[in-house]
Structure formats: structure tokens, C-alpha cells
């Protein structure tokens, strides 16, 4: 079983409501502050992008459902700050002093923002694991799904594509494995592929016979399709 964030293919969410062409980038001021506080805290270097995604996913189902997008961000950030020891629960209650934190020297300064955002955080790494699939090859995703490393842990194999047969579309090189990196188990880079799945392989009632869904999947999510098997 997965968590609530893994919602691809789910029924019952209703219409997508496009925004007005002139809608502001941030619907309200606190959305902008939530994004900025989260990015600034990320610059403290106490976690990586996979840890922060997992923190959002680990909000309780009740909170995940009722929170708006940026409420999820800010709540997961508060949880992360405590989990990594940056803050204590007493700090969050406003019950501690205002002295400078030991990490204060690492705080992101205004003059460094442009350079930090422009620098980005590439996920490709050299890897000792050689690619075993080539474009055009047929593969099947791991079954059961979920994290193979940590029970209930982070993975980027969505439930809807578990046990599905597809075809390698392109190779992206070797990238950090989120399943490992989200849990402090190392970056464990391995080959990453774009894999195309016929819609008919994923859905009981596909809209069109030639539709496809492409997912980026790590090599350890995939196994070769048995010779002679059809997709």
C-alpha cells in the first residue's frame, strides 16, 4: 500500500479548474512566504529534496487531505525541523529563548539567493551500476510496489504503474535513487530511464488505443520482460 500522495489514476476528484490568464503567481501572500521559508530552510543543508518530499508524504492521511498545497509544505517543514534537531517542539510553541542558533551562520542571505537558485541541485551522479536496458527494450516494473528498502518508505514508483509492462524510451544517465536518499542510506545512483506504457496496460478503460503514459523509473524498479511476452 502507498500513501495518499500517490494519487495517479484515482477517481472522484472532480473537474480541473484552470486559473484566469492574469492570475497572480501566488494566490495570497502567505503562499509566497511558505515557499520562501521552505526554500530558505532547505539551504541550511540539513536534508535533501528526497527527505523533504518524504516528509510531505508522511503527513497523516487526515492532514494530507484537508491541507491546501502550501499548508502541506509548511507543516512538513515544521516536522522536518524538529526531526533533524534544528528546532525542538518547545521552539515551535514559542517557549524557548531568542538567542542565535548554532546553524545561524549557514542561513541563506539575500545576496546569495540568485546564485543559489541559479546553481540548482543536479541529481545525476557517476555510478558503478551499468545500464542493462537499451531504448526499445521491453520491461516490467517491480511487483509488489512501494519502497524495497524501507517499509512504508519513499519511492517514486507510483502504485498505478506497479507490475506494468512497458518499453524503454530513453536513458537519462545515472541519477540519485530517491528510495535510498530519502532515508539517509546514501545517494546510491543508478541508471534512470523514461519508460513508455500503453494506456491500455494501466487502465481498464483507456481513452484511446494509442495513448501512452511515460514515467521516469530507476533500473532497480525494472526487470526484463520474459522473451515472447506480449504487451
Amino acid at each position: 500500500m502507498s500513501r495518499l500522495h500517490d494519487m495517479g489514476g484515482r477517481f472522484g476528484d472532480g473537474a480541473v479548474v484552470p486559473d484566469a490568464p492574469d492570475a497572480p503567481v501566488f494566490a495570497t501572500d502567505w503562499h509566497a512566504r511558505a515557499l520562501a521559508v521552505t526554500l530558505a530552510c532547505g539551504a541550511l543543508g540539513k536534508w535533501n529534496i528526497d527527505v523533504s518530499r518524504h516528509a510531505r508524504e508522511c503527513l497523516s492521511p487526515k492532514d494530507y487531505t484537508r491541507f491546501s498545497y502550501y499548508e502541506k509544505w509548511i507543516s512538513a517543514l515544521a516536522d522536518l525541523l524538529v526531526e533533524t534537531g534544528v528546532l525542538t517542539p518547545e521552539d515551535l510553541k514559542g517557549q524557548s529563548g531568542d538567542g542565535l542558533h548554532a546553524l545561524a551562520s549557514a542561513a541563506l542571505r539575500a545576496e546569495a539567493v540568485a546564485a543559489v537558485l541559479a546553481k540548482g541541485g543536479p541529481a545525476n551522479r557517476p555510478s558503478a551500476i551499468a545500464p542493462i536496458f537499451a531504448p526499445g527494450e521491453r520491461v516490467k516494473t517491480r511487483h509488489p510496489g512501494g519502497s524495497a528498502l524501507v517499509d512504508g518508505g519513499h519511492t517514486r514508483l507510483p502504485d498505478y504503474a506497479v507490475g506494468a509492462c512497458g518499453q524503454i524510451l530513453r536513458q537519462h544517465g545515472t541519477h540519485v535513487l530517491p528510495d535510498s536518499n530519502a532515508h539517509g542510506l546514501g545517494e546510491a545512483p543508478e541508471p534512470l530511464y523514461a519508460v513508455a506504457f500503453p494506456a491500455s496496460e494501466l487502465w481498464a478503460h483507456p481513452e484511446h488505443p494509442h495513448d501512452e503514459v511515460v514515467l521516469d523509473l530507476w533500473q532497480s524498479y525494472l526487470q526484463p520482460l520474459e522473451p515472447g511476452a506480449q504487451i
Partner: peptide, 23 residues
């Protein structure tokens, strides 16, 4: 958001001017 921003700012962990710059 305001509460978290205030706590973090008082501890020197975030710089409000940096937040303005990101936004």
C-alpha cells in the same frame, strides 16, 4: 507560516530579506 517565519528569524536561521528576494 507567520509563526514559523518568526521563530526561525529570531534564531537567525532565515533572513527575511532573503525570503523577499526568493519571492
Amino acid at each position: 507560516v507567520k509563526a514559523l517565519e518568526t521563530i526561525l528569524t529570531r534564531k537567525g536561521l532565515i533572513d527575511p530579506a532573503a525570503l523577499d528576494e526568493i519571492i
